[in-house]
Nucleic acid binder design. Structure first.
Lengths: 256, 256
DNA sequence: GTCAACTGCGTACACTGTACGAAGTATAGC
DNA sequence: GCTATACTTCGTACAGTGTACGCAGTTGAC
């Protein structure tokens, strides 16, 4: 499976694609496709068969054109990924939760989680710099709104949003990988652990790792139900927001 | 660039490789290589030229053998990656910091960070299930030791360690990607932002995203020095440990 | 009518992991 | 010492990948 890279070519060309501001050509044959058609087809492939299946040839095949045709619309695969990302970010409801910052940040985390679960291929795209399309901009604006006016500096606001997003990314990726490996191997975590323990114990006395043996067994026994994946997510998010809370409280009472 | 997958084949064979417990063959020609030699060569390639360059052919070339020779020692690339991972985990100093759990968890985070920075290719390996080699076991044992005896359940201990490790993984990956993209594009974040803003403002009124424009500019202006990357790491880690602290304090005084 | 701009796309290149099978070598058992 | 067998190295082949290049056909501007 591939970890793809979002594009970092000519800014003007990228923004043109993201905002669909490409000037229509006057001469020459009418283009047979549109950017939207290609993005839709690519998203269909990625959603159903995963990012690894989303090759230029496969997307072109699904559209009934030759592979090289796509390069008339996108400079390369990276730019196509950029537009795919911006497009799915448009699915975020971006609800404005009433109340204090914590409820808002919580909503940010949950909506992002839902989005990742709906489009797991997103987790495999390394975004070095965000594609500045309409939906990415709106997402960032909405996320910053959750922590605006609570006493954080601009840089701290960005760091906080990035912290939450980073957490959600990592947590969902772990959960999705865990699920995929169960499908691939046909073994649950418990079965996997139980298949290894006898060999491991024979090769090297497990008593040398008492905590690992105890906790590993406890985790293996309890983490078979999907409930526990949700539970792990809630646990981490709770800790994270508690941590942000400690900072915010500090800022509200700067005498500390 | 590839995101590689660690192997999930036959447990007995994998453990044999990780612990170097392969029974020596009696008949036939003497093997020209050892597992350690191959792992060392593979690590050299990955460390210097990145994970994408670490192909079976390249490693074999560096060893002066044919590509298929490696398959006499490893079932596949995934298993080679497993042994590489376990090997580099052996570089962790695993210092026992005196004092309370927070200092110990802090040390866990910092040592893991150092390791990722020394072997950035680790960030691209999707570990669905950890390779249960000697160093991975020792690492897990050491990490659990940081949160043992402070009132958490076994599952909570595992979740806490996973939370810290997940944070470090995400934070370092972001920092490393940011650094790589600067080298690739020849632009700092600030330059990149300043190259996009004019086009962006022309395409769509930036005033529609007031927070994003304000914070984006602030972040772009301030985050050019390496100091700030460290600062972001410290900020996130501080928040995280604060959050864990809130839970631990709660457990110490169960009347809450 | 001509030309330039534009379209789709076939072919080619340098890669990847690894299945298969051929050819050579060292040893266990006699 | 001979042979069968287990074991080695490794060349070739296959089905993929992104995309550079260039050709052929189509359209609107002049």
């Amino acid at each position: 499976m591939n970890q793809e890279y979002s594009g970092s070519g000519d800014p003007a060309r990228s923004l043109e694609l993201l905002w669909r501001r490409r000037p229509k050509p006057t001469r020459g044959p009418k283009p047979a496709l549109t950017v939207d058609q290609i993005v839709t087809a690519a998203l269909r492939v990625a959603d159903t068969d995963g990012l690894a299946a989303m090759s230029m040839r496969r997307v072109a095949d699904d559209l009934g054109v030759g592979a090289m045709t796509l390069y008339r619309y996108f400079p390369g695969k990276g730019e196509l990924l950029d537009v795919m990302l911006d497009t799915v970010y448009g699915e975020l409801p971006r609800r404005d939760v009433p109340g204090e910052w914590r409820a808002k940040l919580d909503e940010v985390a949950r909506e992002n989680r839902e989005l990742y679960l709906r489009h797991p291929w997103m987790l495999q795209v390394a975004i070095s710099r965000p594609p500045l399309g309409p939906n990415v901009m709106a997402k960032y604006e909405w996320e910053l709104g959750a922590v605006e006016g609570i006493g954080l500096s601009d840089v701290e606001m960005d760091a906080t949003v990035a912290l939450v997003n980073g957490y959600v990314h990592g947590a969902v990726r772990t959960a999705v990988e865990a699920h995929k490996v169960i499908l691939r191997s046909g073994m649950t975590d418990k079965e996997w652990w139980l298949a290894h323990v006898p060999h491991l114990d024979q090769i090297s006395d497990l008593a040398k790792f008492p905590l690992a043996a105890r906790v590993g067994t406890a985790v293996g026994s309890e983490f078979d139900a999907p409930y526990d994946v949700d539970h792990a997510f809630e646990y981490g998010l709770g800790r994270l927001l508690d941590g942000v809370s400690a900072l915010v409280v500090n800022r509200s009472a700067p005498e500390g």
